[in-house]
Nucleic acid binder design. Sequence first.
RNA 1: GUCACCAUCGUCUAGCCGGCCUAGGACGGAGGCCUCUCAAGCCUCUAACACGGGUUCAAAUCCCGUUGGUGACGCCA
Length: 461
Amino acid sequence: MKKIVTRFAPSPTGHLHIGGGRTAIFCWLLARHFGGEFRLRIEDTDATRSRQEYTDSILASMKWLGLDWDGDLTYQSKRLDIYNAYIDRFLETGHAYWCDCSPEEVEAMREEARAKGEKPRYNGKCRERGLTAGPGRVVRLRVPDEGRIVFDDMVKGPIAVDVSELDDMILRRTDGMPTYNMAVVVDDHEMGVTHVVRGDDHVSNTPKQILLYQALGFEVPTFGHVPMICGPDHQKLSKRHGARAVIEYEQDGLLPQALVNYLVRLGWSHGDQEIFSLKELVEFFDGNNLNTSPAAFDPEKLKWLNAYYLRNTPHDELAALVAPFLAKLGYEVPVEKIQSLLPMYFERAADLNALAQALTIYFKPAEEIVIEDKAMKALNEDGKHQLTVLHGLIAELPEFTAEALDVLLHDYVAKGGLKFKQVGPPLRSALTGLAGGPSVHDVMAALGREESLKRIERAAR
RNA sequence: GUCACCAUCGUCUAGCCGGCCUAGGACGGAGGCCUCUCAAGCCUCUAACACGGGUUCAAAUCCCGUUGGUGACGCCA
């Protein structure tokens, strides 16, 4: 079988969005599954909107997601000569012609068609005028008068469109730049792309591109259009839905594997399985079992997956990942110290940022511990009384360890005929300022005797 | 408006070459166990085949229509 070549072709007009990210993952997976090649191409033919910083950002996001590409990056802006050579070929073979209609004229044609209840399109005015190159002129494709374009979509199955739906699209703009469809076809052919997997929004481009392949005598690749991702309300995806650029998820403290896992399951499935390692993904993803309908983005499920991956990350790795987030909060602390606190917190946070946030109470002085409202309740009269008594006992505890503290507290409760509820919550409020969290004996052991006593005394006042 | 695509719990989905489906899993939600609390974990529950016609002994599964949704219709990609 011929080697499979896929590609991801973003345009550097913004950061890598989750929709594009998912497409990239699918393309990468398909190539890796079949031992083929995954190529990356930057579609920067729109000079006014393309920016280098976006290219850099997209590349960084690709790396973060773990999507490595084969060969060199291809920049369309550096291939103008190639496109022009092919445009000449179109002209020479009579598949294209020069047109001097102004945008306003064309717009009028579209209006006219719309008024007649037809599809808005260019009417072919310059087809037989025999125009040659000149300023203000574009090159248009001569679309066949009749026929149907049929292709077998990898995910959607057979799709047929009548050529009467297509108009004589522009191949070369007045500024000499190729249009999207033109450049894509040339590049995909020259790069040896065998499988074009892209978003659903491109289905209507496919018949146009097939026309170009045919006119050029190129072999038509396999196309696969994955459905779009929409917001939880099934509306167009927007910031309001919490669906954003990949880079933002990185900044929020998501684990790349969680995002990949989530995105891949949005539109693809492997039976009932929810959790996939990268290795399993490569093993299972063969381009089948892709869904045909648009999927709603669900931040809750992403959160759950991230928490899952967080819990299952070895603590030395996790500590290293948390460190930069703590630093961002103003706490430069040794990774070993972070790791020592992780057993108490790794099951209690949904992302690295929240995890770092939770750890800050171990690095700030007693005076900076703010007691939240919910935690105030435990610091009633009895609570403060218990804290005062406990302060003395803890100060005299011979061996200050979590185990010894646990024994001390339970002995104290048993001897006094108390309930643990009378000592646990006030201690937690005093030590952490929070109503929930790890066992109080663990917290004290982590804080150390001196700091624990300071906080208990402060809260007992 | 025209064309294309799509339609299973609130969401992601399994099932879809018809019978194994009184429709399965996961997230969320509700309740419970555990427990000093919050998580985690475990258990239980919640909730769907858009509608209408066919075809058939039998339809979530096949066909047609309706409705609804998405996308496209650029000298953007």
